[in-house]
Every structure is written in C-alpha cells, then in structure tokens.
C-alpha cells in the first residue's frame, strides 16, 4: 500500500511540475520586417522550390513576378538564409543570406534554363523586318510532340451562336520536341482570305496541336470548339503588310489545370528579359 501511495504521489508530483504558465508563442515575434528588391525572373524545365532557413516557402515555375509579396522580408533572427532547389533532384541552384543590418537587400533577376541558373535568357537581335520565334514545350513526359499553326477560322453568327464555316491552317512549327528550345523559325505573314459567306468573318488563332494530327494539344470533355481553341492558343505576333521592324519571340509552353479544366499557358521570355 505504501508503495502504491508513493507511486501515485510521484505521478502527481510529475504532473504538477510539468505545469507551465508561459507557453511558446504560436505567432513568433519578429525583430523587423525590411524591404527587399527581387527582380523576378523565369523558370522552365523543372520547378524550383524556395526555402528560407530550411522551411519551404513556395514553388517557382514559369514567370517569377516581382510582386508585392516579394518586396519584404521578415527577420525572426538577425539573419535569414535563402535557397532555391530543383524539385527533381533537390540540388541547390541558388543561395543567399540576408542580414537585418543590411541597408539594401536585393535579389537579381534569375533565369533557370532547366539545368542551371543563368543571369538572363539570351536571344538574337531581330534582323530587318523579319519575325522569328522559337518554342519550348514543357509538358510532362509522354504528352507527345506538338505542331504550332495559324488557324484562320471562318464563322458566322446564328443569333448569339457562332457557326464555323471552315478552317484554314498555316503551319508555323512542326514536331516540337518537349524539354528543349526549338530553332528559330521565320513567322509567316498574316494571310488575307476570301469570305465564303456574305456575313462571315475570320478569327485567327495560333494554336498548339498534336504533331501530325488535326487535334488540339489539350482537350477538355464536353467543351465548345471555340473554347477549346482558346485554351490551346498563344499570343504569338505575326508580321503583316505594314510591318517595318523585325521581332524575336521565345515562347515557353506548358499546361495548367484548374478546377478540372486544362489549358496551354504561354509566356514570351523576350518580354521577361528585355535587352
């Protein structure tokens, strides 16, 4: 009995000794929030994950905007250590340490080409009035190669519903292999086509299609044809009869799915890295 009572007393003692008035703050107090300059950049070929002091912050794929959220940095301690790691390999491709005492915290513009970090994306200077473009198809393995073509869609309106009368296809690039930049191709002029119906009009789209097939690269179930075309199009600029200056465009093409709807996303790296 004595032993039992002693054990119980010991247990109570342990319970009482563990009582704490102060706990650990859930929202950690900060020493300071300082401004930071982040010039943004671009990531393709893999996803880069940003870590601060070993804690994962966010993934970067595609454009890295110099958004409002990246203009400030919080210091719980005097220093904060930043790392960018490849998602596929875990390899650190960029790192930087910030100090609370630094007057100017800045991150230069970054470009990850799928293998390593570069100071910028490089491209040739446009020649004369020629329009050229290259493409980087960045879809998951097994998605297949792609063609890019200009689709001139002739349609007329039946009430509020567009009725497609015909499609004229002009090839721009064919058999694009995923995971690497294509050679620069010269872009054709925007064609002028005759109307087959007095009330018809033309809608030009630069579309991504499956290589060698008349199928759009991304197709969602039960979707209007115009919606499918829009979800597979990119804003590639073509020269026309009034064009006087040349233009270089470098399009990164990748897919995105939101709420069950997939679409092709395109970004021109020449605009992200202007000379």
């Amino acid at each position: 009995m004595k032993k039992t009572i002693n054990i119980v007393c010991l247990l109570i003692l342990l319970l009482a000794a563990a009582c704490k008035k102060e706990g650990d703050f859930v929202v950690k107090p900060l020493k300071a929030i300082e401004p930071v300059t982040f010039a943004g950049g671009y990531v393709l070929g893999d996803t880069l994950t940003l870590y601060f002091d070993g804690v994962k912050m966010r993934d970067y794929f595609g454009p890295i905007g110099s958004d409002w959220e990246t203009t400030r940095i919080a210091f719980e301690e005097d220093r904060a250590s930043m790392e960018l790691k490849r998602k596929k390999t875990g390899e650190t491709v960029y790192q930087k340490t910030f100090d609370i005492k630094d007057a100017d915290n800045a991150i230069p513009k970054l470009y990850f080409d799928g293998a390593k970090m570069q100071p910028a994306y490089t491209y040739p200077t446009p020649q004369g009035a020629e329009y050229t473009a290259n493409f980087y198809l960045d879809f998951p393995a097994g998605s297949g190669t792609a063609d890019i073509s200009l689709e001139m869609i002739e349609y007329r309106m039946d009430g509020n519903t567009p009725v497609i009368l015909g499609v004229t296809s002009v090839p721009i690039a064919s058999n694009i292999q995923p995971g690497k930049w294509t050679e620069y191709v010269t872009l054709p002029m925007m064609p002028t086509l005759p109307n087959t119906h007095p009330e018809s009009g033309f809608a030009p789209y630069i579309c991504v299609k499956k290589a060698g097939k008349n199928e759009y690269y991304v197709v969602n179930k039960d979707e209007e044809i115009f919606t499918t075309i829009e979800r597979n199009s990119l804003q590639l600029q073509l020269p026309d009869e009034y064009t006087t200056n040349g233009l270089v465009q470098s399009y990164h093409l990748y897919g995105k799915t939101y709420s069950g709807i997939s679409a092709v996303i395109s970004n021109d790296l020449v605009r992200v890295f202007p000379k």
Partner: peptide, 16 residues
Amino acid sequence: SLGGIEILNKAPLYQY
C-alpha cells in the same frame, strides 16, 4: 482575427 499575408520568406506570415 489573424490574416495571412505573403512576404518573401513567410508564406504565409500571420499577424493579428
């Protein structure tokens, strides 16, 4: 009430 905002090294940073 606490709101979560995003800054460079906190995603989110919660503040009262």
